[in-house]
Nucleic acid binder design. Structure first.
Lengths: 116, 116
DNA sequence: TAAACACTGAGCCACATGGTTCAGTATACG
DNA sequence: CGTATACTGAACCATGTGGCTCAGTGTTTA
């Protein structure tokens, strides 16, 4: 099985656990944007938005570059491959434990137990 | 496009952002387990483990049932479909913005700008 | 019935998060 | 040059998190 770097997954999923940050990713998917543009769009102070962008940078989802006084944010090269792989492997576990037959059998077992 | 319930995704990704909780999901993928078993396996107090299980329950990944003095934890019916769908849609955004041609073009643009 | 067991709830601690304000610094523009 | 712009950094606040202990409650078992 693939070895996932725990710290990385921690940071990734934490970064994705906030609606604003998911929104920022979506926005950057359309085009690059400055901190100011992002702050405006999400009705937030520059400082607040900068923090979110920092979290996304730390997770490797976003890279930024400051040119003059403007810091431009863009999607990073990292993508969501690792997270997708992790989730996919667990979807299989779920599927294995929760296919129709399993459910029926488990339900029957429970009923038997109760009837005893 | 699918409408994701933000609160749900928030809770899901937050639940997945901790290595212990991901470990618990993996463990429950093999078989159901009591709080005590989980606490032992992850070298943690009952109370600590109970909190983790609570977070996983809240996210809908785990269900529990108390019989006698033992609370048994099992994978919930929810699975990771929604999270997988979200991640997949963003993988596509990434792919679109980061295929080989895009990269080359963007790199060229940057070089031109610098050369000006 | 007494003792061991599995869990629960309250409460504490240190630290992170999501947001703010305010006072800078550095750049761009008229 | 002076002013407006874009950001940065420190500091603060309320809330949540990840862990703990300790004192119960209810259940099993000897």
């Amino acid at each position: 099985m693939v070895q996932y770097t725990t710290a990385r997954l921690d940071a990734s999923f934490a970064a994705l656990s906030d609606a604003t940050r998911r929104g920022v990713l979506e926005r950057l998917g359309r085009s690059d944007a400055s901190i100011t543009e992002l702050a405006d769009k999400f009705h937030m102070t520059l400082t607040g938005m900068r923090k979110h962008v920092g979290v996304l940078e730390h997770a490797g989802f976003v890279t930024t570059e400051k040119v003059g006084r403007v810091r431009t944010c863009k999607l990073g090269p990292r993508g969501l491959e690792e997270e997708a792989a992790w989730i996919e492997s667990y979807r299989q576990i779920w599927a294995a434990r929760f296919n129709a037959l399993d459910r029926v059998v488990e339900e029957l077992k429970r009923k038997e137990k109760i009837d005893e």
